[in-house]
């Protein structure tokens, strides 16, 4: 495990923890897209099916379980917590997730390493993760205003993706025969999805003001 990969994982973990703490502390999930959170739950469930039949390391297993548990905890807060669920912007969070799920699944059936149930579902999770943030970005565009914590959450998720890109370059040059085209292409697409958001985030940070997205 190299430093970029570890930093990427930690940034990913931190982004989720920050979101969860924000929801717990403020008893509010205003500005958070439940659709995106549910897509991440689908991503984790379909990708980490290998928990049942493959062991890589204790680190790997623990992180997978944390990602699964935190994803479902956030969803539970947004759907079931009697105070938090009332702050959910249901009318604004209207992204049609099937427009993401169906194409990703079809693509996973067409482009994969092996035509088996677990392999297709794993590939599907890779494709879906690349676009899972879109409902959140659309919700931000609609509400036109990004509070600091929601902004930080997306910024950290973007940083995690960027660190993974560096990790892949590092591994390509240090590990013989290391290549994974499906992961690389989707990861690059995913990082690009964040670039537009990064531009406005950095601009707001430089001007030292609350972040506002263009109409």
């Amino acid at each position: 495990m190299n430093i970029f990969r570890l930093a990427g994982d930690m940034t990913h973990l931190l982004s989720i923890i920050v979101l969860l703490l924000k929801i717990q502390a403020t008893k509010s999930c205003a500005g958070v897209s439940l659709k995106t959170q549910e897509l991440y739950a689908v991503v984790f469930v379909t990708r980490y099916l290998d928990l049942f039949y493959s062991f890589i390391s204790l680190y790997n297993t623990v992180m997978k379980i944390i990602f699964l548990l935190t994803a479902f905890t956030i969803i539970w807060y947004m759907r079931k917590h009697k105070v938090v669920c009332q702050t959910y912007d249901k009318e604004q969070d209207t992204f049609r997730v099937l427009f993401l799920i169906v194409p990703c699944f079809v693509l996973a059936l067409l482009v994969n390493h092996e035509m088996s149930v677990t392999e297709v579902l794993w590939t599907f999770s890779i494709y879906l993760e690349a676009v899972a943030i879109l409902p959140q970005l659309v919700l931000l565009q609609r509400t036109k205003n990004v509070d600091n914590l929601t902004g930080n959450y997306i910024f950290m998720l973007g940083s995690y993706r960027a660190l993974y890109l560096v990790n892949w370059v590092y591994r390509y040059f240090t590990e013989l025969g290391y290549r994974q085209w499906i992961v690389w292409v989707s990861g690059t697409v995913q990082t690009c999805v964040y670039l537009d958001f990064f531009y406005y985030y950095v601009q707001a940070w430089r001007n030292n003001e609350r972040m506002k997205l263009p109409g």
Binding site: D9, H12, S57, F67
Partner: peptide, 10 residues
């Protein structure tokens, strides 16, 4: 497996 290697990334 990714092309014969274990999926060690998260």
């Amino acid at each position: 497996l990714i092309g014969g290697r274990k999926k060690d990334e998260l």
